[in-house]
Design a protein around this nucleic acid. Structure first.
Length: 221
DNA sequence: CTCCCGATAT
DNA sequence: ATATCAGGAG
């Protein structure tokens, strides 16, 4: 099974630079992983919905009790929305999220036999699930490289590194998809997010000890 | 574009 | 006080 290397053309200088940077990230964060705790696709779906504008650490504080009380779509679909609100309140946006969780679980029961669907179109139709959440579930729970997850960290780093010049998530995903080989689609966000949390932070980036400082156009910020 | 919104760091 | 956190919907 020869790994298909160059598509047809030689990569541009820009793409070659990006691919080189990705190799560095891969080497630097070999153990990058999804920071949300889950034991099945449904739990990852719920955790990712809760992770909107909230740290993964905070989500991981509320999900054990949530999953204990409502372990399946069937159980969560029948949950009083006030009960869900109470369990997830500390993650913020709790009224929207509680309503979304109940609607999402209800749809899973009614249209998907209580299982998490494995297509982007079906996932996005669930309450509170957008393209980012859908790609997280497909990539991490099912190992399907449906698309590249574009979150706040990927948006920030892709711009700082000069890979893209837009904050539009759909455009970023489209552009990155053309630059990055599909075998890296699932891990790339993990590498970028690891680096975004540890070094290339939103508020106070630690450029002085960043291993990408040489080639980063934002060097010094 | 605005709104949803609590917890934490600076 | 303000910015930010693995966003999504109207």
């Amino acid at each position: 099974m020869a790994s298909k290397q160059s598509p047809a053309k030689k990569p541009s200088a820009k793409q070659a630079g990006i691919l080189a940077t990705i190799e560095l990230l891969k080497r630097y964060y070999p153990d990058a992983y999804c920071a949300l705790n889950y034991t099945n696709p449904f739990e990852l779906l719920v955790a990712t919905i809760l992770s909107a504008q909230c740290t993964d650490e905070r989500v991981n504080m509320v999900t054990p009790a949530l999953f204990k009380k409502y372990p399946t779509p069937k159980a969560m679909a029948k949950a009083p929305v006030e009960s869900l609100e109470e369990l997830i309140r500390s993650t913020g946006f709790y009224k929207n999220k509680a309503k979304n969780l109940k609607a999402c679980a209800t749809t899973l029961v009614e249209k998907h036999h209580g299982e998490v669907p494995q297509s982007l179109e079906a996932l996005v139709e669930l309450g509170g699930v957008g393209r980012k959440t859908a790609n997280v579930v497909l990539g991490n729970a099912f190992n399907i490289p449906s698309g590249i997850v574009v979150d706040t960290h990927v948006t920030r780093l892709a711009n700082r590194l000069g890979w893209v010049k837009t904050d539009n998530a759909v455009m970023i995903e489209r552009q990155l998809s053309k630059l990055v080989p599909v075998e890296d689609w699932i891990m790339l966000p993990h590498w970028l997010i690891s680096h975004g949390r540890a070094v290339c932070k939103a508020r106070k980036p630690a450029c002085s000890h960043c291993f990408l400082e040489e080639t980063c156009p934002k060097k010094g910020v």
